[in-house]
């Protein structure tokens, strides 16, 4: 069964702007794929549909076989807990420590404090920030902040990770490091979908690429297609 499936999905906003038109694709369980296109091509909208930050105007989005348009408002939080998201602008809270930022999804899901500490430390260790757990995110560099965002996205052990321009503000070396992290999660079976317009980096990695242009699926390059 496909992990994520778009069935003829369109999204238009009031005022007639078509963000997505008739998009069809599947992402299999344990697959890693890039979503490319110019800004405004519909990458963010596509990710927002999977996160239920937006709802499709037409067509169906299925995650784990569940039609997202059938989920009521009260079920949205539980859907989001199964998906880890990394944002370009990190979306970190600067009024609390690195530890608390990463712990947030676990507090929401109702983990006991012992379990929670163990998991947060494991996630921070994975992104190499274990020693900075007591610091405020604002004291850390851009690359480190992005790694906190990644730790927070994976701390709940989601089976699907979405990333929206995760390397947008980083230099090539840091970007490569971040991508390696995503590959490591993918290695243990997590499905990963990364929206990015960093084409040189994407070309080097040789994963599946889904191209968008003006809200339509433009081209696909399978993994190992280079």
């Amino acid at each position: 069964m496909a992990h994520v499936r778009f069935d003829n999905v369109s999204k238009s906003y009031p005022g007639g702007h078509h963000a997505l038109s008739g998009v069809n694709f599947e992402i299999n369980q344990g697959e890693i794929a890039f979503l490319t296109g110019h800004s405004g091509a519909g990458k963010s909208t596509l990710l927002k549909l999977i996160m239920l930050m937006e709802k499709a105007t037409q067509g169906q989005v299925l995650v784990d076989g569940v039609n997202l348009s059938r989920l009521g408002n009260s079920q949205i939080p539980y859907h989001r807990r199964r998906v880890g998201v990394v944002f370009q602008n990190h979306q970190l809270l600067f009024d609390r420590s690195v530890f608390e930022n990463v712990a947030l999804p676990l507090r929401i899901s109702g983990y006991s404090s012992r379990d929670l500490e163990r998991r947060v430390r494991a996630a921070l260790d994975k992104v190499g920030l274990l020693k900075k757990e007591k610091q405020s995110p604002i004291e850390l560099s851009g690359g480190e902040q992005q790694r906190i965002g990644i730790a927070r996205a994976v701390v709940n052990k989601p089976s699907l990770i979405l990333a929206d321009e995760p390397t947008g503000n980083l230099d090539p070396t840091l970007s490569a490091e971040i991508m390696r992290l995503f590959e490591q999660f993918n290695d243990v079976g997590v499905s990963v979908l990364i929206a990015s317009h960093d084409l040189p980096l994407i070309d080097r990695l040789d994963h599946r690429v889904i191209g968008l242009k003006d809200g339509r699926l433009l081209n696909e390059r399978p993994a190992g297609g280079l």
């Binding site: 344990g30 899901s109 109702g110 983990y111 006991s112 709940n156 089976s159 993918n186 079976g189």
Partner: peptide
């Protein structure tokens, strides 16, 4: 990608193990 998808079911079962009591 196929070798990866076989591992996914294991990790899927492991996630979000929260008992009612906890």
């Amino acid at each position: 990608s196929t070798s990866r998808s076989s591992a996914s079911s294991k990790s899927g079962a492991r996630q979000s193990k929260v008992t009612v009591n906890s």
